[in-house]
């Protein structure tokens, strides 16, 4: 009884906030747990989860809130990753960036390469988005997919930067005050980026811009009849989302010190979508939970059988058919709905 009252209290003590609190508590205390157990793999693994959580969150902004089913989000992740990778590779070679004028050298400074990764991913999202948003529904899905695929093949044929084999980096980026080779530092960077981007998106969604984006998902015709230039708002949301994915890509490149066209593959785009749906579409915590559980599931299932995808596939179908609200929906019920 007491529990029920506790949960039904309509104030800060909502089940949603409880989930958020527990999630934050776990993530914040993880470095401590890792150092007590002397388990550095734990931090490396969870860092990767946080990076994918960032990518999934950015994707949810367009799918869950904006109603734009982008099936090519790996492209922006890949652009972010290659930005970091190419800049670093030039440092390794001691060469200048050949395709740009002015003999610009490469760099390993995170202060340059991370923002640049976001900027370039945003630019690519601007171009692809501007073309894709001329269409709707199934066309939009297929066109975003095809554009991502175009970039994928472009990088496969880009022999200068490793082609199909990918590109090894000189090392991780340098940031003042942080040592990215230190697993704990790297973990904090990932958690910081995820939190920062998450808070920004949260603010945006609560502001007038967010109301328009939600309106565009629920009833785009009505939005236009009310005088909103929906195209522009959706495009801006698409770019913001692409920048988030670009940042995730930049972190992922640092994580593995290697980039390859696989980062842009449609398979990864699909996986990002799976994470969003698994965790809870149209919520901010959902994609984070989704990314963590998807990668955890991969980790656990892969421990039993190398053919773990034969279990994952049908599982995915069951989730789609029988549980629309994802993990967050199962945890907090109707309160999960925010899109």
């Amino acid at each position: 009884m007491i529990m029920k009252q506790f949960f039904s209290t309509r104030n800060l003590l909502t089940r949603k906030n409880l989930v958020l609190f527990l999630l934050a508590l776990t993530l914040l205390s993880l470095p401590l747990i890792a150092s007590i157990n002397d388990d550095s793999y734990l931090l490396i693994m969870v860092s990767r989860m946080l990076i994918f959580a960032l990518a999934a969150l950015s994707l949810d902004l367009v799918i869950g809130y904006g109603g734009m089913v982008s099936f090519g989000h790996a492209a922006y992740l890949g652009v972010g990753a290659y930005t970091v990778g190419i800049l670093s590779a030039h440092v390794m070679e001691g060469s200048s960036i050949g395709f740009l004028p002015g003999n610009l050298p490469g760099t390993e400074s995170g202060l340059i390469s991370l923002p640049l990764a976001m900027l370039l991913a945003g630019l690519v999202a601007l171009v692809f988005g501007a073309l894709s948003l001329r269409t709707r529904g199934i066309h939009f899905i297929m066109i975003t997919l095809a554009f991502a695929q175009m970039l994928y093949y472009l990088f496969i044929s880009l022999y200068r930067y490793g082609g199909e084999d990918g590109l090894s980096m000189n090392g991780r980026n340098l940031l003042p005050g942080l040592d990215l080779y230190n697993d704990t530092h790297f973990y904090w960077l990932c958690l910081g980026c995820l939190t920062g981007y998450g808070l920004l998106v949260y603010k945006f969604l609560g502001a007038r811009f967010g109301q328009v984006i939600r309106g565009c998902k629920q009833n785009p015709e009505k939005m236009q009849a009310l005088g909103f230039a929906t195209y522009r708002y959706q495009l801006v949301a698409f770019v913001i989302s692409g920048m988030g994915a670009g940042l995730a890509g930049a972190l992922l490149a640092n994580h593995s010190e290697f980039v390859s066209p696989d980062l842009m593959s449609w398979h990864l785009s699909g996986e990002l979508m799976v994470m969003v749906i698994l965790g809870g579409l149209g919520t901010l915590i959902g994609p984070i939970l989704g990314a963590i559980s998807y990668l955890l599931m991969e980790e656990v299932l892969a421990g039993y059988t190398e053919h773990w995808q034969i279990i994952l596939g049908p599982l995915l179908i069951l989730v789609v058919l029988f549980s629309r609200k994802g993990i967050l929906g199962a945890l907090v019920g109707k309160a999960a709905d925010d899109g």
């Binding site: 603010k203 502001a207 007038r208 811009f209 109301q211 309106g215 009310l226 909103f228 708002y233």
Partner: peptide, 18 residues
């Protein structure tokens, strides 16, 4: 309120809670 937003200029406002 959403309908009113458009009456008050563009909605590229990202910060203040609507």
């Amino acid at each position: 309120m959403l309908a009113l937003q458009n009456q008050q200029g563009h909605s590229f406002r990202f910060w203040r809670k609507a």
